[in-house]
């Protein structure tokens, strides 16, 4: 791994690390780290910084669905145009092109199962080129973006003389 990749790894792990923190960990110069991050932001290597939120801890109702989508690729456009049409919906969290039995994975978050159903019937299924869908609801999140959703916060270490 080169320094750029190492820095990106740290940011992927915790975007709140400062350039100084990362420079300290990697024994690099803070200025160099700043420059690499700025370059990555400029060239789109770093697209943004999100908080990873456990919505179950809030009062907001929310269901997450994973939808398998089969499509008929368009001439000249391949899958890109259909994917772009799906991406345009703000409730869509992620869209991946897949190998295997179906073409696109769409991850959707909505207020209720009914809203998900409405999205699939009224929006997704009507997009040109979409041949079929299979909707799966997420029952629980255990780990996301490398972080385990674990409610235990207490330090498990016993006090001992050392």
């Amino acid at each position: 791994m080169d320094n750029k990749e190492k820095i990106l790894k740290y940011l992927e792990q915790n975007a709140k690390y400062t350039s100084k923190n990362i420079a300290d960990a990697l024994s690099l110069d803070e200025k160099d780290v700043k420059k690499i991050i700025a370059d990555c932001e400029a060239d789109g290597t770093i697209l943004g910084y999100n908080a990873l939120i456990n919505w179950d801890k809030t009062r907001r109702d929310r269901v997450v669905a994973l939808i398998e989508v089969s499509v008929q690729p368009e001439k000249g456009e391949g899958f890109d145009q259909i994917a772009a049409n799906i991406c345009a919906f703000s409730e869509v969290e992620s869209v991946y092109l897949m190998s295997g039995g179906f073409d696109l994975t769409v991850i959707l978050s909505a207020k209720s199962m009914k809203d998900v159903a409405r999205f699939v019937f009224d929006k997704l299924a009507l997009i040109d080129g979409v041949k079929g869908t299979a909707t799966h609801f997420v029952l629980n999140k255990y780990k996301d973006k490398g972080i385990v959703f674990d409610s235990s916060e207490e330090d498990p270490r016993e006090m001992l003389e050392i």
Partner: peptide, 10 residues
Amino acid sequence: REMYNMRRKY
């Protein structure tokens, strides 16, 4: 070691 070093310098 890298994580410790980050904290050490902090």
